[in-house]
């Protein structure tokens, strides 16, 4: 089946098998490396991308479902060589250790402050329920989300 998607501002058209998962489409067909496969059961969130402005788990979605959609992955966050405030915050606050969960974690974190510019710590932690990090204990990630929210508010 032929699908057309807009990924990180570029248009792509491919013939794909209906069963091709969006994560595999992004990684194997489009050639991205940011979204990761961590659990396959829709729990870890390493595969999180934005679909028409909403964070979704691309391992639990078929590529054909994204036909015509706007997709933003971690690779699409920086603009003109300038990191997104959330990326910058993850860097400053040491929100990444092994980095595997990081792209999905940043996409989920971005959704939190897109929807709620001034989240409480509890709101941040609940907003990250769909993302698992095994390295950081989440504290520096929570700090990063707070810092990004603060930076955006300035």
């Amino acid at each position: 089946m032929n699908i057309t998607t807009h990924i990180n501002g570029k248009s792509y058209s491919h013939d794909v098998e209906p069963r091709l998962l969006l994560i595999h489409y992004l990684r194997e067909v489009v050639g991205l490396t940011g979204p990761h496969i961590g659990c396959e059961t829709s729990l870890c969130g390493a595969c999180t991308v934005e679909l028409n402005g909403k964070a979704v788990k691309s391992c639990t979605m078929f590529a054909v479902q994204a036909d015509g959609a706007n997709v933003v992955t971690i690779e699409g966050l920086a603009s003109n060589g300038k990191l997104h405030a959330m990326q910058e915050a993850f860097w400053n606050e040491h929100g990444a250790q092994c980095g595997f969960c990081t792209p999905g974690m940043i996409m989920a974190s971005k959704q939190i402050i897109d929807r709620n510019p001034n989240p409480t710590e509890e709101e941040i932690r609940h907003g990250l329920e769909g993302n698992i990090c095994r390295c950081t204990g989440y504290q520096h990630i929570v700090n990063a989300v707070k810092a990004a929210a603060k930076a955006a508010g300035v």
């Binding site: 991205l32 490396t33 940011g34 979204p35 992955t73 971690i74 690779e75 966050l77 920086a78 990191l83 990326q87 993850f90 860097w91 400053n92 040491h94 990444a96 980095g99 990081t102 792209p103 940043i106």
Partner: peptide
């Protein structure tokens, strides 16, 4: 801040 992070936070590792 860490020097390995730019590739991790941009999904290019």
């Amino acid at each position: 801040r860490r020097r390995e992070d730019p590739r991790l936070i941009t999904g290019t590792a």
